[in-house]
Design a protein around this nucleic acid. Sequence first.
DNA 1: GAGATATGGTTGCGTTTGTAACGGTTGCGA
DNA 2: TCGCAACCGTTACAAACGCAACCATATCTC
Lengths: 146, 146
Amino acid sequence: MAETQFDLEGFLPYLLNQAAEAAGREFAAAYRGRYGMTRTQWRVLAHLGRFGALTATEICRRAMEEKTGVSRAVQALEERGWLVRDALAEDRRAEALSLTPAGHDAYQALAAEAIRFDALLRSRLGEERAAGLAEVLTALIGAARD
Amino acid sequence: MAETQFDLEGFLPYLLNQAAEAAGREFAAAYRGRYGMTRTQWRVLAHLGRFGALTATEICRRAMEEKTGVSRAVQALEERGWLVRDALAEDRRAEALSLTPAGHDAYQALAAEAIRFDALLRSRLGEERAAGLAEVLTALIGAARD
DNA sequence: GAGATATGGTTGCGTTTGTAACGGTTGCGA
DNA sequence: TCGCAACCGTTACAAACGCAACCATATCTC
């Protein structure tokens, strides 16, 4: 029987990983280097900064992150004084997480960095291809939620 | 001053990561579940199966992988009997890595799995969008190599 | 309303990963 | 040819990650 012809360089999960790691590594310098943050911490910060108060579970669902990672990231951000927990009247198991003013400042600084970096990537690709890319990735993510 | 408006859900590194993790998690069941392999091990196997004998450094460069990760993956694949090291006459620091027949069999099985999964992803997206995605990702990866 | 079941969040532990330092080898310039 | 820098690959150590087990609370079922 003939050998299976497998094209590694056209394999979508491989390409996605390579592109994500390349982009991630490049951007990580902005938050790991300057703020000593983990990727998960940055994600939690970004979600709270963008969407306001959330519970840990909501962050998990939105960010497709493990609850244990979120738990630790929340703890780290809390110790840094960037985040506070508030009791929820309707469910005493859960906590409403929200950013302090200092946390919001950090978010603003990183968001500005992110906007710059995103613009750089989009200029590399051309705005049209970049928009198409974002659309296809979103579709892919949505399809995987099942 | 107005707040910086940052659109997390359109941020390309974020989308890339989400899509890559979603696709990777889904496919990982094929090699982690059935063969107990690490992602790096799978990558090393794939590169050797696809491109023949390589040195560890060449794999690092092609796969954008850390040399320490490759070192450990090679060791694991060697212990499993899927890979052999051959001395290189022209440079006694480096080793030529290549798959054994058993390793090649494993590669074939996983490649078949990968082809199936890739086809599934492409059918989800539609062939046209999938091809465009692959092209843009390749461009992004190429641009990041600088 | 009591017991079973599900959910929010934390902790513990083993695995994986990344950074830094290290032997061994090669290549280059003084 | 001697010394020195660069390079290949491994090891050591620390950080991060993921899974499973675990408390506390909430919900469901009878």
